[in-house]
Design a protein around this nucleic acid. Sequence first.
DNA 1: GTCATAATTGACTATTTCGTCATACATGAG
DNA 2: CTCATGTATGACGAAATAGTCAATTATGAC
Lengths: 210, 210
Amino acid sequence: MTNESTQNTKTRSQKRSTKTRLQLEKAALDVFSEIGVDAATVDDITTRADLGKGTFYRYFKDKYEIATKLVDDITEQLISQLSSYDKTPKNLCQTLEYLLDAHYRFYLNNREGFILLFQGRVMAKLERESAAQMEEPYQKYLEEIAKLVSPHTSSPVDSVKIRRLACAVAGFVFGFFSFAIIAMEPNEIEVSMESLRRVFVQSLSGFLER
Amino acid sequence: MTNESTQNTKTRSQKRSTKTRLQLEKAALDVFSEIGVDAATVDDITTRADLGKGTFYRYFKDKYEIATKLVDDITEQLISQLSSYDKTPKNLCQTLEYLLDAHYRFYLNNREGFILLFQGRVMAKLERESAAQMEEPYQKYLEEIAKLVSPHTSSPVDSVKIRRLACAVAGFVFGFFSFAIIAMEPNEIEVSMESLRRVFVQSLSGFLER
DNA sequence: GTCATAATTGACTATTTCGTCATACATGAG
DNA sequence: CTCATGTATGACGAAATAGTCAATTATGAC
C-alpha cells in the first residue's frame, strides 16, 4: 500500500528521482545561460550534471522541453517577485520604482535565469507573429506589469498606454542589464541602476499621467 | 595584362564572384535573424541563397566567419548612421534625441541587421569576461555614443557618467525594440517610440547635468 | 535475506551537419 | 574555336549529436 497517512514523507526512490530532476534542471540552466540553448547539447547538460545520458531522456523529451520548463518556472518566479511585496505602494512613482527594483533583485538573485529569459524572449518567433501567438509566460509577465500599474493612473486605464509602459519597462530593464553585465563591474551596476531608476521612473510617470 | 587604365571596370568573373558573395551574405543575414546564428546551418544559408554548398566554403571558413563579417558591417553602418548628420545639435537634449532617432531609423531600414546585432551582443561571452575582451564592434559603438554626447555636457566630461549613459541608451533602444517587435504592430511602434523618446531624453539629460 | 519494481547507465545505432573534392560550367585571352 | 583559369556544384566520407535499450544498480515490501 502506498503511503496515504504519511503526509509528505517521500520514499527514497522519489527523493532520488526529484534530486536527479533538479540536478538536470540546474545543469541545463547553467549551460543554457553560458552558451545559449541552441548551442547546448544534451551531452553538455548530462556531463555538467554528472549523470548518464539516458537519464536525461527519462525526464525530458529533448533539450527544448527542459528549456521551456525552465523559462516557465523562471518567469513564474519573476512574476511572483513582482506581485509579492509587503507595503502597498501609495502612488504611481512608488509603483514604478518598486517594479524596477523587483527586476533588479531578481537579476541579482538569479542571473542565469535572467539571461535565459532574455535569450528566450529574443528567440521567440520574432517578426510577423501576432502578439496573440507570443509565448505564454511573457504574455503573463506583461499582464502582471499592467495589473500592478493600472490602479495608480488617475484617468481610467488606457490599455494602449499600459502596453507601451510595459514595453518600456521590460525593454529598459532587460536592455540595461544586458548591456551592464558586459560593460560594467558588478558594484558599478548597482550604483548606475540606482540613479537611472529614479530618473526613468519620473519620466514614465509623466508619460502615463500626461 | 590585367586592366590598369580601365578604372573600375570589373571582369564578368569578378562581378559574378561579388554577386555570389553578396547573395550569401544576404541569405545568411535573413537566416540568422530568423532562427539565430547557433541554430542556423550552412545548408540553411546556401539553400536560401540558391547556391551549392561548396560555394559557401569557397568564400567563408564557416558560419561564424560570415556571422562576424555581418556583425562588423552592420555595426559599421549603425555607427556611420550615428556620426553622419547634417545639422550640429545645439544642446544635450537635441543630441540625445538625435541619438535615439538614429537608432530608430536604423531599426526601420535594417531590421534583420538590428536583430542580428542584438542577438550577437547577448551571445558575446557574457559574464566574467572583462570589458576589454568585449567584442570590438560593440566597444566602438559604445565609444561613438560617448563621443557624440560629451561635447554637450556643461561640466568637464565625467567618464563614468558617460559610460552609464551609453549603457542606458543602448539598453533602452535595444530593449525597447526587442520587446516592441514582439508585442506591437509596426505602426504602433512608431508612435510609442515617438512619445517615449521625448520623455527618456529629458530624464537622461537631467541625469547628466545633475 | 528474496524479489519485484524503479532508476541509472553508457555503449550502440540513427540522424544531422560538416567540410571536401572530382566534375562541370563560365569566362576571357589568343 | 581552343585552352587556361576562375567559379559553382552536390555527392560523399568524416564528425558531431541525437535518441535507444539491454544490462546494472538502488529501493523497498515482505
